[in-house]
């Protein structure tokens, strides 16, 4: 690779063995990491920082268990590289409550018994936070369609929709 290219890139290609500096702001806290480029955001959260609330289900963007918010937008943490999120603000399930006070969606999931095993729940709740922010769900059918990226193998869907609807009041 020529020097010209080196100068033009903010982050030039590194030799395989060299981890890259990655700065993630997670739930309001700065984390400065050295990660190899193939580490997904999901693995960075769980394996390198210890935020295990975000779950690994399929690891292929199909189940939604790994849903987090990046700069307020819900995405699948398994389908993005941590290095690509350098400098961005990540919110995980651990960042939703205010001290001991649950986030309204967390409280609604408890209230409506919106889970059985609970494995998909962090992803469901983060996804619902994103859904409400997007402001596109006006009806129960809209909630179902716009939560379709979150699979619940226990089949708690009816209660999940109830929980989300109770927070939106049907008027988002």
């Amino acid at each position: 690779m020529s020097n010209t290219v080196q100068e033009k890139t903010t982050l030039a290609a590194q030799p395989l063995a060299e981890p890259l500096p990655v700065h993630l702001r997670i739930n309001g806290e700065d984390h400065r990491l050295q990660l190899r480029p193939w580490v997904s955001l999901l693995d960075a959260l769980r394996e390198y920082i210890g935020y295990t609330g975000t779950k690994k289900g399929c690891d292929h963007g199909q189940c939604g268990a790994c849903t987090v918010l990046v700069d307020g937008v819900r995405i699948n943490a398994c389908m993005t590289l941590a290095v690509m999120r350098d400098g961005q603000e990540i919110t995980t399930i651990e960042g939703l409550a205010n001290g001991d006070k649950l986030h309204p969606l967390q409280a609604a999931f408890v209230e409506h018994d919106a889970f059985q095993c609970g494995y998909c729940t962090p992803g469901q709740i983060c996804s619902a936070v994103g859904l409400i922010k997007e402001g596109r769900a006006k009806t129960r059918d809209d909630i179902r369609e716009l939560m379709s990226g979150n699979i619940c193998r226990c089949g708690a869907y009816t209660n999940i929709v109830d929980a989300i609807e109770s927070v939106t009041g049907g008027t988002i």
Binding site: M1, S2, T4, V5, K8, T9, T10, L11, A12, A13, Q14, P15, L16, L20, R36, P37, W38, L81, V83, M84
Partner: peptide, 27 residues
């Protein structure tokens, strides 16, 4: 598989980058 990574800041640098590396892909 292991791979290297770059993040160019403009389009000319990006096409240069993909042309200079073997088996390179845009992401």
């Amino acid at each position: 598989n292991p791979f290297t990574y770059s993040r160019p800041t403009d389009v000319p640098a990006a096409v240069q980058d993909v042309a200079t590396h073997a088996e390179a892909k845009f992401i």
